[in-house]
Amino acid sequence: MKFQTMSKIATVIHGASVIGLIISVILAVLLTIVLIFGSTGFSENPFSMTETYLEGMTIPLNDKPEYGMGLFFELLWLIVSIMYTDLLRRLCSRIKRGYVFCDDNFKYLKVMGILSIPFFLLNAATNHGEAQLILQHANITGAVFEYSLLGNVSENLFYGLLNCGLTFLVAGALKMAIDYEKDSEGLV
């Protein structure tokens, strides 16, 4: 792959990650305000719900449950997402400036791999909270809603470990290329 093509791809991903960071930080600030101050600043709690959405279906709720602990897990998930996206932004920024084979990129990839496990486990926690909300408060007639905590956690852990392993694989290949480049510079 030519460097110009790689630089253009890195520029697009860098731009998207900057936009994602801005949106994520705004959401994190709003969630933090609601968690700290509760719903005192609102006429009605904006996180109490009359319906929820699951896989494209709207499910009406019998009463208005508070989202409660789910907000805390959402905030943690958002913080890990911000950290992951910031590392991606830094990586792409270095690549688009021509620093492809450097130790910083290797470190960014390693940390991104490590962050993928809590990212997916927090995703499992938020999925569990949503499922409990549906099971306790949903008005479902003629439908069966099945949920398995073990299946949810194992699926998210599998994807977290898979993402971590693939990221470590790419980081290892990058480290080998960095070492090869340093060795070949010493020969010249």
Rank of each mutant, 00 (worst) to 15 (best):
117 I>G: 04
104 D>K: 08
99 Y>A: 12
112 M>Y: 02
55 E>C: 12
64 K>H: 14
101 F>D: 00
35 L>H: 11
60 P>Y: 12
126 T>W: 10
132 Q>A: 03
42 F>D: 14
120 F>Q: 08
127 N>I: 04
87 L>T: 00
117 I>S: 06
31 L>C: 07
99 Y>G: 01
73 F>D: 13
56 G>P: 14
72 F>K: 05
91 L>A: 05
113 G>S: 02
78 L>H: 09
134 I>E: 05
36 I>E: 07
133 L>H: 04
88 L>D: 00
60 P>K: 09
135 L>A: 09
93 S>M: 02
59 I>C: 12
104 D>T: 06
32 T>H: 02
32 T>F: 10
72 F>V: 14
81 S>Y: 06
84 Y>T: 10
137 H>M: 02
64 K>A: 14
33 I>L: 12
39 S>H: 13
59 I>S: 11
80 V>F: 09
51 E>C: 06
102 C>V: 13
137 H>G: 00
144 V>N: 07
32 T>E: 05
52 T>K: 10
74 E>W: 06
90 R>S: 06
100 V>K: 09
83 M>N: 01
139 N>F: 00
41 G>Y: 15
72 F>P: 07
84 Y>V: 02
75 L>D: 08
70 G>F: 09
115 L>Q: 01
40 T>P: 05
117 I>R: 07
90 R>H: 05
108 Y>G: 00
95 I>L: 04
30 L>M: 14
29 V>I: 15
87 L>D: 01
60 P>T: 11
72 F>W: 13
109 L>M: 11
111 V>I: 09
126 T>H: 05
58 T>M: 15
135 L>M: 10
65 P>L: 06
65 P>D: 08
34 V>E: 11
96 K>L: 03
54 L>R: 15
99 Y>I: 07
49 M>P: 03
66 E>M: 14
51 E>M: 15
133 L>Q: 06
43 S>W: 13
105 N>I: 00
136 Q>W: 05
50 T>E: 13
90 R>Q: 08
83 M>T: 01
106 F>L: 01
126 T>N: 06
141 T>A: 10
115 L>Y: 03
63 D>F: 04
75 L>F: 12
64 K>V: 14
113 G>L: 02
116 S>Y: 00
92 C>E: 00
126 T>D: 06
101 F>A: 02
50 T>I: 11
77 W>Q: 11
90 R>N: 03
44 E>K: 15
95 I>T: 00
47 F>C: 09
81 S>W: 05
39 S>F: 08
62 N>Y: 11
106 F>A: 03
50 T>Y: 03
61 L>G: 12
103 D>T: 04
40 T>D: 14
130 E>Q: 09
102 C>R: 02
133 L>R: 11
114 I>T: 10
77 W>C: 09
80 V>D: 13
54 L>Q: 15
